[in-house]
Design a protein around this nucleic acid. Structure first.
Lengths: 211, 211
DNA sequence: TTAATTTACTTAACACCGTTAAGTTTGTTA
DNA sequence: TAACAAACTTAACGGTGTTAAGTAAATTAA
């Protein structure tokens, strides 16, 4: 079984190499601008070889999608120890925006790019699990906030989606370069400033007694 | 001068036809999926003819971009008569989301798609003017809100950008199909629900006396 | 040890894309 | 009627994702 296992290992290695090269390239030029031929050239294989390891370009997309969610969950895991749920919510917002700024192309892939996210959501999919872990962390934090008297009367799931939307809006306008409407002066660290504003808004909506 | 003017009129007509066909096609299949060749086929001209009327595909992009901003400003114009600035702000948010839902592909083009929005911002550009009119409406509304005691101590421009971000986030998650994380039950009219939540948050952040 | 077979990979091609250079048709002017 | 300019087309370049068919090497079986 040594030969078979060696072969399997080698196959796994090449698969990983393709994925890593794909990641490198799309970090440099974005996913849309990265072609199968580009990847093939860099790993010194013919383009068709890639199709022996991935069904199509979407398959590579999904693999990187999963990696992205694993990465963002790393950002979040560091915040699990924050005891106060409202503080944790604020920290999550900041971490999310940091993730987006530090991994723009990943963010693009995960939340902006148009792609068959279909055939997803099946239980078999690890990606869905990672995605739900991230969103679940947000939902649970918000549920704890509500238990503590914040956001009274609001639906946790819809509120979680709304908070996500708010920070996502900041990130996607930043990444897709729609920030030119604001003056040069305010444009520096605009995403961070907008995130701070969101946090301010969330803080102000609560009676002083809570804070 | 009758001949020359007729020719000029005809040229203008074909230009308009190209643009209208482009609009039709990208409304059906999205901008990225609409090719010069598709447009050419539908208007029964050779693909190269289009290049006599538009420099390149980006040029068509920009023309449609302008149309989109004219359209969203129509949505906004109906709200100019709303006297109370805070009510107007709420109405703007709702109108913005309605625009996005009713004109998904336009919205995509204007605020999501990656494209050389560069070489923009020059004063010569009508598009920039339409864009600034829309954002200006939001900024002015927020300034009025601040004068009335809302959002005390906040920077109007950054706040305007933040509010825009918040509703844009909702729209872009909806348009790019990232809403599957929420349960089936809440998924109906999710964009509207999230918009309502944003409005609730904005309302709650103010002392009762103001409302 | 040699023949058969499986595995891993490549070549060549298809149908598309945006774009351009060169050529053709058409209508207007001299 | 000849010259010219405008409007439009043909053919091509270099790129894309993807597939069918072919090759070379490694492994298995005789």
């Amino acid at each position: 079984m040594t030969i078979a296992s060696r072969k399997e290992r080698q196959k796994e290695e090449l698969r990983t190499k393709i994925l890593q090269t794909a990641k490198e390239l799309f970090m440099e030029h974005g996913f849309e601008q990265t072609s199968i031929r580009n990847i093939a050239e860099r790993i010194e294989y013919s383009p068709t070889t890639i199709y022996l390891y991935f069904k199509d370009k979407d398959d590579i997309f999904h693999a990187l999608h999963l990696e992205g969610f694993r990465l963002i969950n790393q950002y979040f895991r560091a915040l699990e120890h924050v005891a106060d749920p409202f503080e944790r919510l604020k920290a999550i917002s900041r971490a999310y925006i940091n993730f987006a700024i530090e991994n723009g192309e990943f963010y693009d892939l995960m939340f902006i790019i148009r792609s068959p996210i279909n055939a997803l959501k099946k239980e078999d999919d690890a990606k869905w699990e990672e995605g739900m872990r991230a969103f679940g962390f947000l939902i649970n934090t918000i549920k704890e906030c509500i238990q503590k008297g914040y956001f009274t009367g609001m639906d946790p799931e819809i509120l979680a989606f709304t908070v996500w939307s708010m920070v996502h809006g900041v990130c996607s306008l930043e990444i897709r370069n729609r920030c030119d409407v604001v003056s040069e002066l305010n444009r520096e660290n605009l995403a961070t400033k907008a995130c701070d504003t969101i946090i301010q808004i969330l803080e102000r909506m609560h009676p002083k007694s809570l804070q």
